[in-house]
Amino acid sequence: MAKNAPIGDNARRGAVRDRSQVFNPQNQTWTKRDADDGRFMDQKKDGDPFKGVRKEPRK
């Protein structure tokens, strides 16, 4: 499990589990997906990938 302490240092130790992210080339954003059921959870506006979330391989 990812640990975020101490609060305020903007760092995460370890990866976020049970989630992955995939790049959407149509709108140039990263989308976070739940690994258990495959549902899309969140999408970033700025085009940068999520911190600490593994990337799915391109097909």
Rank of each mutant, 00 (worst) to 15 (best):
Q26G: 01
E56G: 03
V53K: 01
E56I: 09
V53R: 01
D9Y: 06
R54H: 08
F23K: 12
G14W: 07
R17L: 03
A11W: 12
K44H: 11
D36C: 10
A15N: 11
Q21V: 04
K51S: 12
G14H: 09
Q26Y: 12
R19M: 15
V16G: 04
M1D: 08
K51Y: 14
D37P: 00
P49L: 05
Q43I: 14
F40W: 00
D48K: 11
Q26D: 10
Q28V: 07
K3M: 13
K44G: 08
N24P: 02
M1N: 07
D46A: 12
K55E: 10
D18R: 11
P6V: 05
R19G: 11
Q21W: 02
G38D: 02
R54N: 09
F23D: 01
S20Y: 10
K51F: 14
D36T: 10
R39G: 07
A35M: 10
V22E: 08
G38K: 04
I7M: 04
W30C: 07
A11T: 12
D9T: 08
R19V: 15
P6I: 11
K55C: 03
D9N: 15
Q43Y: 12
D34N: 15
I7Y: 11
R19Q: 13
S20T: 09
K59I: 00
I7N: 06
D36A: 15
N10T: 12
R17C: 00
P6Q: 04
R33C: 03
A2P: 06
K55H: 07
F23H: 13
A5E: 14
K45C: 01
A2D: 10
K45W: 01
R58K: 07
D37S: 10
R19T: 13
K45A: 14
K59V: 01
F23S: 00
W30T: 04
D9I: 04
K3A: 14
Q26N: 09
S20F: 10
N24K: 03
W30G: 04
R13Q: 13
R12M: 15
M41A: 14
D36Q: 06
A11P: 03
A2Y: 09
D36K: 08
D34E: 09
Q21Y: 05
D48T: 13
G8L: 06
F40N: 00
V53N: 02
K32Q: 15
N10Q: 14
Q26S: 08
